[in-house]
Amino acid sequence: EPREEEAEKYIKRANGDYDKAQELAKKDGNEEIAEAIKEYKKR
């Protein structure tokens, strides 16, 4: 799923820090991806 791939990219950029990844996504205006990262975190 493209959303998950995007989320993974942010998580990698944030060195595995989900909260930081979420912030990066929000900064880029990717609210949807920020949500996907939140879902990811719950797994």
Rank of each mutant, 00 (worst) to 15 (best):
K9A: 15
I33P: 01
A21K: 00
K9Q: 12
R3I: 15
E31I: 12
D28Q: 04
K12E: 12
A25P: 01
D19W: 05
E1D: 15
E39C: 05
R13Q: 12
Y10E: 02
E39K: 08
A7C: 04
A34R: 04
R13T: 08
E35Q: 10
E8H: 09
I37K: 01
A21R: 01
K26F: 11
A36V: 13
I11P: 01
N30F: 14
K41F: 08
Q22W: 15
K27G: 08
A7V: 15
R43L: 14
A34I: 14
G16V: 01
D17R: 02
N15K: 08
D28N: 04
Q22H: 10
K26R: 13
D17H: 04
G16K: 03
D17L: 03
A21E: 00
D19M: 06
E39N: 07
R13F: 11
E32C: 03
I37D: 02
Y10C: 00
R43H: 12
K38N: 07
A36R: 07
A34P: 01
K9C: 09
G16L: 03
K41T: 05
K42M: 11
D28R: 00
A7P: 04
K26H: 10
E6W: 10
A34C: 03
D19E: 10
E32M: 10
E8K: 13
I37A: 00
K12I: 11
K26Q: 12
A36S: 07
D19G: 05
E39H: 06
E23T: 07
K26A: 09
E5D: 12
A25N: 01
R43A: 13
Y18P: 04
K12V: 09
E8P: 02
N30W: 07
K12Y: 10
A14R: 00
G29T: 02
R13Y: 10
K38A: 13
R3A: 12
E1Q: 11
L24E: 08
K9H: 11
R43M: 11
Y40D: 04
A36W: 15
K38M: 13
E23V: 07
D17F: 02
A21H: 01
R43S: 10
I33V: 13
E1M: 13
A34G: 04
I37R: 01
G29Y: 04
Y40E: 06
E32K: 10
E23K: 06
K26T: 12
K12C: 03
I33D: 02
R3V: 14
N15A: 07
E23M: 10
K38Y: 10
R13S: 08
R13P: 03
K38W: 10
L24S: 05
I37P: 00
I33Y: 03
E23W: 10
K27Y: 11
G29C: 00
L24K: 03
R43C: 07
Q22L: 15
I37L: 05
K26G: 05
D19Q: 07
D19L: 06
L24D: 06
G16N: 06
K38T: 06
A21L: 01
R43E: 10
G29V: 02
A14D: 01
Y18K: 03
K27V: 09
I11E: 01
D28Y: 04
Y10G: 01
R3Y: 15
N15R: 07
Y10F: 04
R13M: 15
R13N: 08
A25E: 00
D17Y: 02
E8I: 15
L24T: 04
K12F: 09
K27E: 14
K38S: 09
D17K: 02
E5T: 10
A21C: 00
K41H: 06
E5Y: 11
E4F: 15
E23P: 00
G16P: 00
A34V: 15
K38D: 07
E4W: 15
E8N: 07
E4V: 11
E4Y: 14
A7D: 02
E6R: 06
N15H: 11
K42T: 12
Q22Y: 15
Y18H: 04
I11N: 02
A25T: 01
D28C: 02
R13V: 09
K38Q: 11
K12S: 10
E4H: 10
I33Q: 03
E23I: 08
G16S: 03
K41A: 15
K42F: 11
N30M: 11
K42I: 13
G29F: 05
A25D: 01
D19P: 02
E32P: 07
R13A: 14
K27T: 10
A36G: 04
I11H: 00
E1V: 13
K27M: 13
P2T: 15
A14Q: 02
N30D: 05
K27C: 04
I37V: 05
E4T: 09
E8S: 06
I33M: 07
